[in-house]
Amino acid sequence: MQGTLPLIKTKLIVPGIQDQWIRRAKLSKKMKAITEKPLTIIQAGAGYGKSTALALHVKDQNQSCCWYTITSSDDDILPFLSYLTAAIQTLFPNFGHELITYMKKMDRYIREEELSMLSSLFINETLQIPEKIIVILDDFQAIEHSYHINVWLEKLLEHMPGHLHLVIATRTKPGWRVLAKLKARNELNEVSKTDLIFGKEEIELLLSDFHQISISGDQLDQLYNITEGWVIAIGMIAQRLPHLQSLDELLAEPAKSLEDLFQYLVYEVFSKQPPMIQQFLEQTSIFEELSTDVCDHILGMNGSIQMLEQLTAKNLFIQQIGGSSSGIMLFSANSSRIG
């Protein structure tokens, strides 16, 4: 393992959270199941509060955990395992010595038997820890394409020590075959966008209790229709309200008041997509609703159903309508729909 860079220690720290966050009983119940199941997957698109919900749960439960915020530079098995080992060492300093020794002897060309050895060493060293271990992998979508990391994690999940609880926060659900087995055994805890979005009562509570803003029932309905409970959109609207004459000003033209949100999405999501997906999103941003017919005939595409399915699976600016291949564009250039 030649030329290793120093680890960035801030990636191993639980993110700080603001006090302006509502505790929700249904979500809290699912988060508490983290210590009851071997694997928890928290899956939703950008800005739905996955990291915040996890950090809040850790704080409220006063729970010790090994936190690792993943970045795109960690998309190989050796840097990934180096950070994962360091995360566990924040609570258990003696963990990982055999694993690290073995990794230092490896080169960049990983063989299948080496992945098995890395998995065995990790599991065996985990068994030497006499207490419960909660490992949180945040922003897993940054390395979801890594073959070696996915193979290693599947090997781990096949032989998970009973006291190890793995939490994965991601925008895209992993395609691991072992998930079906875990689900059948009731060993998989899943938190989805549905669990993270705000309902009307929660939006009203957030505005009244934390921002001292009172709104009418009609305004609440409009605000909910604009955001569809999307946490980041609600937060940005709440920050914007004190600078407006009235809420009606925002409701009339919500897109003008959410420029920061658009910039966030461009930086955090759009700019990180492959050129083909960027081009497709740009070409279709004029539409509020999409279908395979629109893409194939108006845009002159072939096989657009695969692209629409990929965007839906990745939670990229599109929401599926029913079970069809049609979808609503959530980030269209001419739309006031921000959900």
Rank of each mutant, 00 (worst) to 15 (best):
L220R: 05
Q20N: 11
R23D: 14
T172W: 07
L258I: 05
S28L: 13
I197D: 04
I22P: 12
F80S: 04
I8K: 15
P274M: 05
F317Y: 06
D76N: 15
Q219K: 09
K50F: 13
D60G: 07
Y102L: 10
D76A: 14
S332Q: 06
L153Y: 02
K11W: 12
S146W: 12
H211M: 07
N334F: 15
R240N: 07
L207Q: 02
L265M: 15
F95S: 01
Q128W: 05
L299H: 08
G175D: 02
L39A: 04
L54Y: 01
A169V: 02
I321V: 09
A46S: 14
Q43G: 08
G96K: 00
G16L: 10
F122D: 01
K193C: 05
N189F: 01
H97V: 02
T40S: 09
E249S: 14
I13T: 13
G300R: 09
L99R: 00
S246T: 12
K314Y: 09
E204Q: 13
T69H: 09
T85E: 03
N124H: 03
I213D: 07
E259S: 13
H159E: 10
Q141N: 04
L91N: 15
G96Q: 00
I237K: 07
P79M: 02
N62G: 14
P274V: 11
L207K: 01
F92A: 04
Q279A: 15
M236F: 12
K30N: 03
L244M: 10
F262Q: 11
P274K: 07
K181N: 06
I17K: 08
L153W: 04
I8G: 03
S146L: 00
L281A: 01
L121H: 01
P242V: 01
N124D: 10
G303R: 08
Q63K: 14
F210Y: 06
G339Y: 15
N315Y: 10
L330T: 03
K105C: 09
L7F: 08
Q263H: 15
V58K: 11
Q263F: 14
L156N: 01
Y83H: 07
Y264S: 09
G96N: 01
K29D: 02
Y102P: 09
Q128I: 08
D195S: 08
Y83C: 01
E190K: 11
W152N: 00
N302K: 12
E204K: 15
R177G: 05
P93W: 01
M236P: 00
G327D: 00
N189V: 10
R111W: 07
I143F: 03
K173A: 05
H297T: 04
S146P: 00
D74H: 15
S72R: 14
G162I: 06
K132Q: 13
A313G: 08
K26F: 05
E249V: 15
E154S: 11
A180S: 11
H57Q: 12
A333E: 05
A44S: 08
L5T: 14
P174N: 05
Q212S: 10
E113N: 12
M103P: 08
L27H: 00
Q219F: 10
R177K: 14
K256M: 06
I328M: 03
I42E: 01
L121N: 00
D260W: 08
Q141I: 04
K9S: 12
M31A: 08
K181M: 11
G322S: 03
A313H: 09
A142Q: 15
R177T: 12
